[in-house]
């Protein structure tokens, strides 16, 4: 099978570019810890209110962990609890969420906080809120007729 010299050049360039992309992503994910949200913990979706983490949604200061705060959200058609929350600027926060009914999407506009929220699973992501502003939390996975009304607000304040 014959391959033109220029095609070889092109494929070498293309494959190299893909390898560079993968290396950047791999180092960032596995060495710097920037993995996509992938928590492997589970919860009974019918007993979310009794669960240690989820019985009091909202922002909590924590000690002795790699992060300073835990910000807990409970998703239920068609609302996020809490409906609004203030986070101090520069706080390193673990955002934790689960669903009491169907699948929801936890997206915070203008940030990298974006994760699927599925009944039975706990979703979490750690981030540092380093820019002041009002960030809209919205459901970005279809969950029913009120899907587009399902919101919350994170206010990063000094």
């Amino acid at each position: 099978m014959h391959m033109h010299k220029f095609e070889k050049i092109w494929l070498i360039f293309g494959v190299t570019a893909l390898l560079v992309f993968l290396s950047v992503l791999g180092v960032s994910a596995f060495y710097l810890g920037n993995q996509p949200p992938s928590c492997l913990a589970v919860v009974d979706p019918t007993k979310v209110d009794e669960h240690e983490t989820f019985k009091e949604p909202g922002l909590k200061k924590v000690e002795g962990k790699d992060w300073d705060y835990e910000l807990v959200f409970v998703a239920q058609a068609f609302a996020y609890t809490p409906g609004t929350v203030e986070v101090p600027l520069g706080a390193k926060v673990k955002v934790i969420a689960t669903s009491k009914d169907v699948i929801h999407g936890f997206g915070v506009a203008g940030t990298n906080i974006n994760m699927m929220v599925e009944p039975g699973y706990i979703s979490e992501i750690v981030t540092t809120f380093d820019k002041v502003g009002e960030y809209l939390v919205l459901c970005n996975e279809y969950c029913g007729s009120g899907h587009h009304l399902m919101t919350s607000m994170i206010k990063v304040v000094e």
């Binding site: 220029f6 050049i9 092109w10 360039f13 293309g14 570019a17």
Partner: peptide
């Protein structure tokens, strides 16, 4: 030649 330039534009 044109093909090579074109694909590099894509790249």
């Amino acid at each position: 030649k044109g093909t090579l330039v074109s694909v590099f534009f894509v790249g």
